[in-house]
Design a protein around this nucleic acid. Sequence first.
DNA 1: CGTCTATTTGAATGTACTCAAAAGCGGTGG
DNA 2: CCACCGCTTTTGAGTACATTCAAATAGACG
Lengths: 193, 193
Amino acid sequence: MNFELILKNISRFINLDKIEVDFFISLLQSKTFKKKEFVLQPGEVCKYEIFVTKGCLKNYTLDNKGFEHIGMFAVEDWWTGDMHSFITQTPATCFIAALEDTEVLLISKQNLETLYESVPKFERFFRILFQNSLVTQVQRVNQSIAYTAEERYLNFIKKYPKLEQRIPQKQIAAYLGITPEFLSVLRKNLAKK
Amino acid sequence: MNFELILKNISRFINLDKIEVDFFISLLQSKTFKKKEFVLQPGEVCKYEIFVTKGCLKNYTLDNKGFEHIGMFAVEDWWTGDMHSFITQTPATCFIAALEDTEVLLISKQNLETLYESVPKFERFFRILFQNSLVTQVQRVNQSIAYTAEERYLNFIKKYPKLEQRIPQKQIAAYLGITPEFLSVLRKNLAKK
DNA sequence: CGTCTATTTGAATGTACTCAAAAGCGGTGG
DNA sequence: CCACCGCTTTTGAGTACATTCAAATAGACG
């Protein structure tokens, strides 16, 4: 198993000695998902924080008309999960599914609590991680209320240029909160300019 | 000075002994703002995490047309600030202003770092605080891409019934991401039903 | 190769915005 | 205590942004 990526991810904010590294790794599980497989479905409790080492996940909900709305994508080196379900250990309301064949590392709620107790530095790590996610989400809220669909699309491809080429347009539309048809029109108009 | 509220807020997630309480309080500053006064303006660095003990603050940006978009309201017992500016100690891009005469407690970045070092339990407290904020923001993102303005308004008054009566409609429109005129129309239609 | 899904295109519709004007409301000064 | 001023809210007409529905085309995968 390859833990390089997650250790590098963590070392951005805290330093671990060998014993701590080994202990941390002992608390992880690894798992793979095939394209289109579900990592989490509504009704299930989100038991894990999820770290993607390969592939791409999407975190989405269905509205009352059955349309998909993507909360986030998670590619290599990203953390994901359903925070609400994870914290409260109540049934999730969202799906997490694989857009590509994907490999993840998982840490269970219980193991994470153990980790917080044994290596308090991890409180710091996750505090900073959540802090950063919060900044991203706040910016996204601001974007979605302040900008038009075209502006949001341009921001998306600027911010995630590699992602745009990896995933179907339909998925990007579901992330931007517009219909695939309208995204197609936007792209045509932008191509003209 | 009255620290009851903030201590109660903190005790929801961690327990402090008397010495820790006193130390924590020694790191706080208190400040008052008159209605319409600015707590933070773009260009300034957000030096503090802000806890509201009385009144109401709004956290907003201006778009390129000069329109206001409100990221969050903060009333009594709420934390606010510009997280991005605070973390990176770079100039803020948003305003924080008082909607009513407001009293706040402030903790500076430096004092917060001191606090994390001296009383690591606070890593836990803020980790949980940011985690919860993250849940809220994720839900808000989802709302703004998945629901119509009318649904968002109904959700807002369901979620913050007291707030709706305290602040001008114009401010609610700026929070929902619609024009005040359109909110007026929505309210008229809803009244008919 | 055939099937299934994604993307494009277009016409009709609905949602939300712009601009302008009138009405309501709150604070301030006389 | 009233009158006035400035700001918020309402109302309406015209417009722009985005969706719906349907059909055609293109791509992906077994």
